[in-house]
Design a protein around this nucleic acid. Structure first.
Lengths: 255, 255
DNA sequence: CGCACCCTTGAAATTACTCAAGTTCAGTGG
DNA sequence: CCACTGAACTTGAGTAATTTCAAGGGTGCG
């Protein structure tokens, strides 16, 4: 039995264009076996609607893990035996083109699920990379399969997760991959700010911005700089900004 | 009881930027009430795994309809009480930005489902427009809900539909919205050609091409013309082409 | 201190967009 | 039968946006 805080280290090789291009050491700290019944964010997660007897069907341990920023939960193509509920932090789902260019197809926050596709196929379809230190629960595929077979109370939640993912995918296509770089970036900030103008927003690395918006790192950098100059965003701390929603809406060509 | 071939006509108003911008007459020909048990493409559709007793739970009629090219199955924002299985033809799912620009987010072919989102929310999230005359089965939401509640044999198929949609969405983001117009168009042709180099491919209208690839009509036109000139595609009949897969792969930056 | 990494900026080259004609073609009506 | 029309497609030329390539900061860390 692993002890609290123990580190699982393993190596990952990412092949690209036939060569090994990255070589990273990944660390996930084990935080214990999750007690889903008493989960602090129970109402947000996949198991929200389960009842006491349903939990008896969970016959494999659900581990709670903490992944540090920069590490991967899994890589595209890897055989998937588990899915992950995000409890805290921020995770990007990355897809690679054969020529090595990468595109970020989704962002996962608290309550979202990474690796849903293992319920249908066997391999992960993206690489899940941690942007901000993330706490996750690792749920073996077998557990979800069994619950799904034996209780109807998981269906609704599962469908909602699929739906949320699909909605975000469509939204990214129409809002973050259409129009000029300026419009796209403005729309991204509006998404990040939500409807709270005061809430500070963390700006991603320029390379990640580019991979989300389908533009180059340089264009991302230039456009962010222009936004600061013209007051569409105000940098309070390094890479922490507050959004000027009306100005951003104008730049996004909304209204 | 409606008669075979009867037309249901109704008007649709699409509001955009506060004004009515389109005004279309939609026609759907009724082809009868579907007999799912003996469906010709049973193995492809949502009900593939249902057993004889399961069908007893279908208490509302499932109508088979034919929509002609250019008509809509439904519009974004409309209240959705049914989803549609595509039996034949081709349908595009379109999403509009507030400024009126449109983006095609998905293509639906035989076996795919339009309007899955009504199982989770109440409104359609896209407009479903027919590109090539389409035969569809209209399944009331209530039927799917009930089957989903009372038999486990629908779950797998439903999950697969969600998964397929999500896969296509991600694929479009990485392949059709990344890189130059030339690369995007080449990748689209490769998708359309599948692995059959000989199969003739119908080229969409230039405006639709633009809306799929996130480029303008003119750029789409120019790039198609260039592909013809340089032999990446060969036009056998108007807007019917055969693909030169190796050349396209080179243009797509694959290999 | 110096290296690594990321971000920024500049200038030239490329790509795509815009605006403005033409073209083709099918459908319509004289 | 043949102009006429509208819609979709094509093409050109100028302009704007983005990429590319290259170099120059800044910061943290060994």
């Amino acid at each position: 039995m692993p002890k609290e805080g123990e580190c699982h280290k393993f190596q990952v090789l990412i092949a690209c264009e036939g060569n090994i291009v990255r070589h990273s050491q990944i660390e996930a700290a084990w935080k214990g076996t999750a007690e889903c019944r008493s989960c602090g964010i129970r109402d947000l997660v996949l198991f929200a609607d389960l009842t006491e007897p349903d939990f008896k069907l969970v016959h494999l341990p659900i581990d709670e893990l903490v992944f540090q920023s920069g590490s991967n939960l899994y890589d595209a193509g890897e055989d998937g035996w588990a899915l992950f509920t995000v409890r805290a932090g921020l995770i990007k789902l990355v897809q690679y083109l054969p020529d090595g260019t990468q595109r970020i197809v989704r962002l996962l926050r608290r309550g979202a699920i990474a690796g849903l596709e293992v319920l249908v196929g066997s391999a992960y379809e993206h690489s899940a990379v941690v942007l901000q230190e993330a706490a996750v629960c690792r749920i073996p595929r077998e557990v979800v399969d069994r619950l799904n077979r034996e209780t109807p109370r998981l269906h609704r939640q599962l469908m909602q997760r699929w739906h949320q993912s699909l909605r975000q995918a469509d939204e990214w296509l129409t809002e973050l991959s259409t129009g000029s770089a300026r419009e796209r970036l403005a729309r991204l900030f509006l998404q990040l700010a939500g409807d709270a103008p005061e809430r500070p927003v963390r700006v991603f690395g320029r390379e990640d911005l580019g991979a989300m918006l389908g533009i180059t790192t340089e264009t991302a950098s230039r456009t962010v700089a222009e936004f600061k100059r013209n007051g569409l965003i105000a940098e309070t701390m390094p890479n922490i900004v507050t959004c000027n929603l009306p100005a951003l809406r104008k730049a996004a060509m909304i209204e």
